[in-house]
Design a binder for these strands. Structure first.
Lengths: 337, 337
DNA sequence: AGCGCGTCTGTAAGCGTTTGCAGTAGGCTC
DNA sequence: GAGCCTACTGCAAACGCTTACAGACGCGCT
């Protein structure tokens, strides 16, 4: 491995000047800068992050904490984070909080404290008091995406508003018998996203003067399969059936579309379906959805964390993330009886 | 940040002994070990990876190079890598090779050379000569998954055999008019996976004495949509139509199933469909597939790289990855005319 | 001419660990 | 009792950078 001394020797300068030239800190004459550049290039020198970070306290590395790697939403956010950070010359190290409690504990108590990262991005993690405290105690800039947390700088999408928008879209098409696939009202107290979407849904109905129908609330687990089963229940039960379904995720919405088809209902003629997310398969299924631009969420989080890193005083505040109704082919006007 | 000196003071020992006690290297009496444990625990001490890696040359961090983060296969492999490594106390830093040539160049020329990682896992990257050279020049253990590379230790799944197995499954059900959705024979010279799958398919047909029918070869881009379009072409064209389709990925197979349904063909009665991968949605669609266990691939790569790290002489050799035919509901016996 | 200032450079002291080496103590063998 | 070995410990020198500090120089000012 070639070290900074060799570059200094070849450039005929001290290591201090080489360091300054390469990092862009402090005064270096244009001539020296150029000689350093050439020498470094010639030797194929790359600064050792080990030594550099020990000496400077900066690692040029951001920790990203995610609950899942193999689910579309999270890997898409991660992809956004990654592309924004790599562009700026930062590396990213990954902390995958799994269901395993020991691993999770280890991440907060040990892994994140190894001084490997300059800052942390937490993606859609429901953090308890202790974990929030531990993140804060790192003394590093932290940005959380989703799951509002009063003590952390958070980028959130307004799930309540998202759900209301999706529901209002159905209402504006004349639907009044609208079902919701999503949170289980009995079990979702601790997990905000599904709950907020359900509440937004209910608010939209209330605003339209429609009383909530408990039979039109079907819990599901945010998978295609879950959405499929839920929709089958909603549509297959004897008695009145909904003319529209608002699913709390695109994957469930896709499941609902497939369930409707399997039961012989046409989408959107017999059933309108709207989802949330902006899933990559949405286009294929012509799914109407409220896109929350997960790739852009990742990029914004990366930008925000770098901004905090560069000027720690900046009051990053709590950012609101954009969303947009994308009307495609799975929703239509309620036919006149 | 509490340092090793404070632990040493509290334990009444030298920093050297503390270091040895915590790392488990060299002689330390049981009593000292215990005192160190307690002192470290009490102070909440965590070794600084900055200092530790500078002094020891070990980072306890593995670099993982992936071409995509937001595609199911890659994020699943990554998930496997991550869980296996975290379990062993390793961190993982991510290098996402995007389409952007500059980023790709930067990863190989700079990012990987920052001494941030002890070893590298390259997932399904088609490496050219230079890149292979650069990986080797790192002087680190490297494991590649997929894309056989004679100069690197590689874990490969035998795509040729996979494809042959899938095809033989269809043959054994009595099908002879079998179409393939996958590689474009004209453009796939540089990308081995699709090509090998096509060749395996053709070999199986040849072994069964069936002449390849160029009209039954439909290129597609490995997405659901691509599979859908390809299947529509295959089934919609006037003239003879295939009774079975072998798609080179599950996502394309799912597209094919949906296309068949949309055209009014029943699966599997009118058309059998088999895919490759073991995609998470395969179960939902009752898709017959050849599973290649991507999660396990990631875990195996992680184990292999750690094994190389621990005993560098071990001849890891070129490992073959397992695969298995999973027969579900999209394939059936060819009905007697 | 003398002064202050901005620019540039080098010297050397860290940064927080790990580890080679030397030293001690105790137990064995002869 | 000498000699050797093993188990344990501490001292201090790395590891490869960054940066505070100080010195040197040229410039414009008084």
């Amino acid at each position: 491995m070639v070290s900074i001394d060799e570059v200094a020797r070849l450039a005929g300068l001290s290591t201090a000047t080489v360091s300054r030239a390469l990092s862009g800190r402090g005064y270096v004459s244009a001539a020296s800068r150029e000689r350093v550049r050439i020498a470094a290039q010639q030797l194929g020198y790359v600064v050792s992050s080990r030594a550099s970070s020990l000496a400077s306290g900066r690692t040029r590395n951001i920790g990203v904490v995610v609950p899942f790697l193999d689910r579309w939403f999270f890997s898409t956010v991660l992809s956004g984070v990654s592309s924004a950070l790599m562009r700026r010359g930062y590396d990213i190290t990954l902390y995958n909080i799994t269901a395993d409690e020991d691993v999770r504990k280890d991440v907060f108590e040990t892994a994140l404290r190894r001084q490997r990262v300059d800052a942390v991005i937490a993606v859609a993690i429901e953090l308890d008091e202790d974990e929030t405290e531990q993140l804060l105690a790192l003394g590093l800039p932290v940005i959380a995406i989703g799951g509002p947390n009063a003590r952390l700088d958070t980028l959130t999408v307004d799930d309540f508003a998202l759900a209301r928008l999706a529901t209002e879209h159905l209402l504006s098409l004349g639907h009044t018998d609208i079902a919701h696939i999503g949170a289980n009202p009995e079990f979702d107290i601790d997990f905000h996203i599904p709950t907020n979407r359900r509440l937004g849904f209910e608010q939209a109905l209330a605003d339209a003067g429609i009383a909530p129908n408990p039979a039109y609330l079907e819990p599901a687990d945010f998978t295609v399969d879950g959405g499929y089963r839920a929709a089958k229940q909603l549509l297959g039960r004897p008695g009145p059936r909904p003319t529209a379904v608002f699913a709390a995720s695109d994957e469930m919405a896709i499941g609902a579309v497939l369930a409707a088809r399997d039961l012989g209902y046409r989408v959107p003629e017999d059933l309108s379906v709207v989802g949330i997310d902006g899933h990559e398969l949405g286009d294929f299924f012509r799914l109407t959805t409220v896109d929350q631009f997960p790739l852009a969420q990742g990029e914004r989080a990366a930008d925000a964390v770098l901004a905090k890193l560069e000027s720690s005083d900046e009051p990053t505040a709590h950012g609101e993330l954009p969303f947009e109704l994308i009307v495609r082919g799975t929703t239509a006007r309620l036919p006149k009886a």
